[in-house]
Design a protein around this nucleic acid. Structure first.
Lengths: 204, 204
DNA sequence: ATGATTTTCCGACTTGAATCCGAACAAGCG
DNA sequence: CGCTTGTTCGGATTCAAGTCGGAAAATCAT
């Protein structure tokens, strides 16, 4: 951000711009999203955009950050509850909540997520990955027997990344070959089967 | 593509443009890739680009198609060999080959893959997914006991998508927390553990 | 309160890349 | 060789991103 908004009026302007970003992105897609479009919808002059954003990219960047931050804010409070559940139920619950989260507010986030990959969205995922890593760590602590699993960092990496992208991919697919519920069920089975098999192996 | 090249000279021009696309993309990244850059490197006039491509996007589009096609061409002949191996070895072999493939030819594809997500790359992945589905199908045929696994389409979807994106994500990550070999080992374990656990369950 | 100072806002203007176009050039063909 | 058709070129045109300088609003100092 080029300059920080100091007055309340300015903060409102910045908000309006980001908000307008979400609106145009959801309505027109990223191609038709010009600075003028955004300025018009935000009800500000083009110049104002450049008071607070280095360039158009940065608007998308801030939008991505906000989306990820909101997602994390949604997940964080669930952690204490999730770590007490059986692993399969925990995954299912997490995914169900995420689905609801995307559909809230006239599906704004869902519509934007469809174009997420087109923009440099992946660079903002890291905090989410960290949060999910945290969730995994806490889960392991609450289920000491699972600590015997080998290569926990690697498997955590794979499941988190594979999970995130399977879901995003599914959301982006206009005609997915499986339903979201099937996807969720599959991911949950994936994780639980893996841990069960691994624990069976180390017990031998 | 706006017009089809009829003479050999024209085909060479089209090739030169796509080739130049790969070169600039690998060297400068997508931001610095302008039509003039491409035209200069290809040794043609800017105008020539628009004889065969609707717009700059389409160059990237054709590049993606070619990359996917080459990947498939690399995988197809491996299938008969892969379906005979134990599942873990098959996954490891496939990933090792893919790694070598990316590193071939001065790492051209690897360098481009880094920027792949930025462009509308995902829309071109489908044929690759189809090929991998084919591989899965053939594998199942060669190992009839695995046909007892439930939800094969779902799990196939998850493993293929999760696998593709875990790998791409890993390639794009400048400082990945795990090595490629660890990733490969993890994915292989993921698949094999799942099938083993699932077979154990249905036997009960 | 009121003038000084800082912050914010704006939209015509500049810039530079994408795209178009028509003249010039090469190839195939009788 | 003339003629047609395919091909190439690079300057002209278009269009959106990003700039700038001054006006208006908010805040501050006295």
């Amino acid at each position: 951000m080029a300059r920080k908004p100091r007055q309340r009026r300015a903060k409102a302007t910045v908000d309006a711009i980001v908000e307008a970003g979400f609106i145009t992105m959801a309505e027109r897609g990223p191609a038709a999203t010009t600075t003028r479009q955004i300025a018009d919808i935000a009800g500000v002059g083009v110049g104002s955009i450049y008071e607070y954003f280095e360039n158009k990219e940065e608007i998308f960047s801030v939008m991505s950050d906000r989306f990820i931050a909101d997602t994390i804010a949604m997940i964080q409070p669930l952690i204490p509850e999730l770590v007490r559940k059986p692993i399969k139920d925990a995954v299912l619950e997490l995914l169900a909540r995420f689905r609801d989260f995307l559909q809230a507010g006239d599906e704004r986030y869902l519509k934007c997520a469809r174009h997420a990959m087109t923009l440099g969205f992946e660079q903002h995922v890291e905090p989410l990955q960290k949060t999910l890593s945290e969730l995994v760590t806490q889960y392991l602590m609450h289920h000491p027997e699972t600590l015997q699993i080998r290569n926990i960092p690697t498997m955590s990496y794979i499941m988190i990344n594979g999970g995130i992208y399977s879901v995003i991919r599914h959301l982006c697919d206009p005609a997915p070959p499986i339903s979201f519920d099937e996807l969720a069920e599959g991911l949950a089975n994936m994780v639980s089967h893996y841990t069960e098999r691994e624990l069976a192996l180390v017990r031998e």
